[in-house]
Structure formats: C-alpha cells, structure tokens
Nucleic acid binder design. Structure first.
Lengths: 192, 192
DNA sequence: CCTAAATTGTATCAATTGATACATAATTAT
DNA sequence: ATAATTATGTATCAATTGATACAATTTAGG
C-alpha cells in the first residue's frame, strides 16, 4: 500500500456532508458546497466517491440512520414504556433550536426533494424500518399488558408514520411548541 | 391601445404553468419547461411576467387556491355534516390516479421545495386558510349538536393540518389505498 | 397609408451545475 | 535511489440555469 497519506479525516468529512444534505437537500447541495464543508478539493472528492454526489448521498443517508434513529431503536428494545419513549422522540421535532426542527426529517425531505426514485425509495424504506421498530415495541408492551391501545393493530405503522411526517410540515405552519406537543400527546393517547 | 394581439390564451397558459409547478416544484420547474407548457417564447414570457419565474409562481399559487380549495371551502359553509365532507377531501390524496396523489399537495410541496421564504410563508398561509375554514365548519356543527368532538378545540387546526400534511408524505411510503383511508377514518373519529 | 404601440422569435449572456484532465506532491516497496 | 502508487490543487469542460437584446411582425389610431 504505497502512496501519499490522506490529509483529511474520512469520517469527519462524511459527517460534514450529512449536515449539508440535511440542510439543503440532495438537489440543492452542490458538489462545491459539499467539498467546502468536507474540507477537500475536487480531486479528493471524486477519488473518494467515484460515483460523485450520488454515491456520497447514498452513504450519507446510510450513516444518518446509523447516527440518529438506530441508537433510539436499540434503546426501544429494552424499554417497558415505549409510548413515553416515542413521545420524546417525536418531541425533538418541536425543539426550536434542534437540528430536527430546523432541518426537518432527513428521510421525509429526501422523499420530497430528490429527483432520483432510487433515493426516494431508500428514504421510504428507512422510515419503514423506524415504523417497524415502533410497531414491535408497542406490540410487546400490549402483550405485556403495559398499554391498552384503542387503535387497530393494522393501522399502527401508518398512523405513527403519518404523525411523524405530518409534524415535518406542520412545524413550519404552527410555530407554537406547546400546541405541537399537545397534538403529539393527544395523537399518542390511542396507544395508552 | 394599438399593437399586435396576443396569440395565446393567458388563462390557459397560467393553468399550464400551475401543472408544471405542481409536478416539479418551484426550483425544478425551469423557465424553459414553463414556456414550453404555456406554449409561448421567451419574449412573451418576460413581457407577461416581468418578475420572471418568481412572479409567475406567485400568481400560479394564488390561482391554485382559487381553482381547488376555494370551491370546497365555499361548499363547506352550506353543509350540515362537515366531517363527512372533510373525509372526502382527504380521500383525494389516496386516489391512485388523481393529481393530488400523484403530485401531492401544492402548498406542502412548496414549503419543502422552495428556496425563497416568501413562498414558504405564502404556502403556509394558504394551508392556514384551509384549516381555518375547517375549524369554522366544525365549530358550527358542534354548536348545532351535529357532532360531538372528543378533541380539545384549540388542537383542531393543528390536528387536521397534521393529518393532511402527513398524508402528503405517507402516501409515498404506504401505497395501500385502504390502509390510508382507514387511517383517515380513524383519525377523524375524534370529531364525531 | 403610416406611425406608434404591443407582441413575438432568435440569438445570446453570465453564472452555476456535476464532472474530468493533468500536473504536482508525498509515501512505500524493491 | 528509483519506480509504483496514492493523494491533492488548479484549470477547465459541456450542459443548464434565469434572464436580456434586438430585430421582425402585427395591429390600432391618425
């Protein structure tokens, strides 16, 4: 393995790219924006990501899932009261200074903003994985008698997805944090 | 008033522009795409819309409201059972071959896709106008004893907005029309 | 008819886009 | 040391963007 050493940190660069895509979306994030944020030039960019912006975005979305939803989904497996945990997860969309309320949901944004159907499908699949994990945790709580849902089992995933994806837009219309949280609370009551 | 006569129909051209913006969003709809759909050239385009794409979009969004939500909001004022009417309105998002399910909600899309905050705010305001009309109709029905809502009055608008804006994304994840409709039905039960 | 006003068609502009070419620099194996 | 290999910096490409210039065309009023 001869050759010059990398002058930049690959992980740090990818994390920087995630934030650029998160803020601007796939189409609006230009390759120059990305390179600037990643602290690298054209040559290093296309050497590391031969597929260019497309390849970078695919890896970026993959790591986003690993960084943000995945730890929570793992936690959810060990928790007795999933409704309360899910509520806190949804609350992050209402925190005025958080990345989620400012940039929105990475996956929902992608479904809206990306041209390539490949990315839309991948984003939808990631949201589906989250809904699946929510479903599993709630089903365990129901079987254990911790919760007594009044909503039919077959609607759980879509109902929870719709609450989350809705918040992603609604937060731009309704700025009052307490109203948003009250709407989350009310919507989640059907699981208690 | 001397001068050459317009060779194209202004209303038809604006309607064509609406569909282009609806399908592609403000940023992705290029001025050439718009001109082609409108059946006019550069000169006529910038003569009719001196503000260019921005002015055309502003007028397009205005007319969209007049063409689609407005007639329904007028109808809502004359109706005894607003919940059933609102349900049907929400159902359009689940019709596989309809413009709404294919292109999504014009206003929600704009909030996600437009760069200019001016357009995001205008889109949010339009959604607010719809929510206001829903609120008024439901309040009348409650006062008349037609419905017996179990959701606090102060959450009505946000709850209804969230259901609608959520569907705009959720329909891309959950393709089963019957599940989508069942979710709408279940969510609207709190007003009955 | 003729002139001023309004509309249209074509060519073109500067800026930005994603991406590549190519020379230079640094590192390791032989 | 020298060759092979990897990384970097700069210049540049073709395509597309929103927008303008300008001449040609059509129409109404005098």
């Amino acid at each position: 393995m001869a050759g010059r050493q990398k002058i930049y940190d690959e992980d740090a660069a990818l994390n920087a790219a995630i934030d650029v895509f998160w803020q601007q979306g796939y189409e609006k994030a230009s390759s120059r924006d990305l390179q600037k944020a990643m602290g690298i030039g054209f040559s290093s960019f296309y050497l590391a990501y031969k597929g260019g912006k497309q390849e970078l975005f695919a890896k970026s979305m993959q790591r986003f899932f690993t960084l943000y939803p995945q730890p929570f989904l793992n936690l959810l497996k060990t928790i007795d009261n999933p409704v309360e945990a899910i509520r806190q997860y949804y609350y992050v969309m209402t925190e005025p200074n958080g990345k989620f309320s400012q940039f929105g949901c990475y996956f929902s944004n992608t479904i809206f903003q990306a041209d390539e159907n490949e990315f839309k499908d991948a984003a939808a699949k990631n949201l589906g994985r989250i809904a699946d994990a929510f479903y599993d945790a709630l089903l365990r709580a129901k079987d254990a008698g911790t919760i007594n849902p009044s909503i039919p089992t077959e609607l759980w995933k879509t109902y929870l997805l719709n609450l989350w994806t809705g918040l992603n837009t609604t937060k731009s219309i309704e700025k009052d944090q307490s109203i948003l949280r009250a709407t989350i609370d009310f919507s989640l009551k059907v699981f208690e």
